[in-house]
C-alpha cells in the first residue's frame, strides 16, 4: 500500500532522515521506535505528507505524494489518512462530537446525516457516547484520546497514523486505547505508530528501530508469540535500553 523509497529530510543543516526505505502493506501494524530526536515523528509526518522531504519518494497506492499539489494532498490526507497525536488535539469551542465529525463534513464524501450517524457509531464502539456534548476540558485524557481515534476514523481512512498515542495517558487509559487500536487492526485497518511504549509496540507486527534518521534494525513478529517478551529480548539483543 505504501512504498517508502530512500527518503531523506533535513532541517537546515541537520539531517533528520537519511535514505529510509520500507514498505507498509494493507492490514499491517508498523511501529516506529527509537530514542528521542532520532527522527521517528518526522518519518511519520514525511510519509503522511505533512512534511516535505528533500529526496526520495513516498508512493501511496501507486501515487507519489511528493508530486501532489498542496490542496490535492490535503484532500488525499482527509480521505485516506487518519491521525492521532500524543496530546489529543481538539478544537476549542466545539463539542467532542462536533470535533469528531468535522473532517467528515469537510470531506463531503457523505451526507451530513450519515456522518453524524457514523460519528455516533464510532463513539459507541469506543465507549465514549456519554461525552458527546461535552467540551474537551470536561473529559479525561483517555476519553479524549479515544475521541481522537473516532475523529481519525470518521472518513474511513486507508491508514491510521498514531504519534505517541499513549504518551500522555495513565496506565488505565493506555489499556483502553491499546485495546481499541488492537481491535481496529484486527478489523483490517492499516496502522503506523510512533512510540516509546513497549506495550504499544508489542501490538504491532513489524517494528522499525530508528537511530539518527536511519533504520538501525527491523523486526517482524511471528503470529502467536508473547510479543512483549520477544520485543524485550530483541531490544536487549540490539543493546538498546528501551
Amino acid at each position: 500500500m505504501i512504498k517508502v523509497e530512500k527518503i531523506s529530510k533535513s532541517f537546515k543543516d541537520t539531517k533528520v532522515l537519511q535514505d529510509v526505505s520500507f514498505d507498509i502493506n494493507k492490514g499491517d501494524f508498523v511501529a516506529i521506535m527509537g530514542p528521542s530526536g532520532s527522527g521517528k515523528s518526522t518519518l511519520l509526518y514525511s510519509i503522511s505528507g505533512m512534511d516535505n522531504i528533500n529526496s526520495g519518494k513516498v508512493m501511496f497506492e501507486g501515487r507519489n505524494i511528493g508530486e501532489m499539489k498542496e490542496e490535492e494532498l490535503s484532500d488525499f490526507r482527509l480521505s485516506k489518512m487518519g491521525f492521532v497525536f500524543q496530546n489529543p488535539q481538539m478544537l476549542k469551542n466545539l463539542s467532542v462530537f462536533d470535533n469528531i465529525i468535522l473532517p467528515g463534513l469537510v470531506a463531503k464524501k457523505e451526507s451530513a446525516e450519515n456522518i453524524r450517524k457514523r460519528g455516533l457509531e464510532l463513539m459507541k464502539k469506543m465507549e465514549i457516547e456519554e461525552i458527546k456534548s461535552r467540551d474537551k476540558s470536561q473529559v479525561s485524557g483517555g476519553q479524549l484520546q479515544r475521541a481522537s481515534i473516532c475523529r481519525a476514523m470518521i472518513n474511513n481512512p486507508e491508514i491510521l497514523f498514531l504519534d505517541e498515542p499513549t504518551g500522555a495517558l495513565n496506565s488505565e487509559a493506555t489499556d483502553q486505547v491499546l485495546k481499541i487500536v488492537g481491535l481496529l487492526n484486527e478489523d483490517g485497518m492499516t496502522i503506523m505508530t510512533v512510540t516509546h511504549d513497549k506495550r504499544v509496540a508489542a501490538k504491532a507486527r513489524k517494528i522499525l528501530y530508528i537511530i539518527d534518521g536511519q533504520i538501525a534494525a527491523c523486526k517482524e513478529f511471528s503470529v502467536d508469540t508473547d510479543r512483549e517478551t520477544e520485543l524485550d529480548e530483541w531490544l536487549k539483543g540490539l543493546q538498546i535500553i528501551a
Partner: peptide, 16 residues
C-alpha cells in the same frame, strides 16, 4: 495558531 495547526493536521488545506 493551535486551531490552525489542528485543522491542517486533519486535512484542511492552507487555502481552506
Amino acid at each position: 495558531h493551535s486551531a490552525i495547526a489542528i485543522k491542517k493536521s486533519i486535512g484542511f488545506s492552507n487555502k481552506d
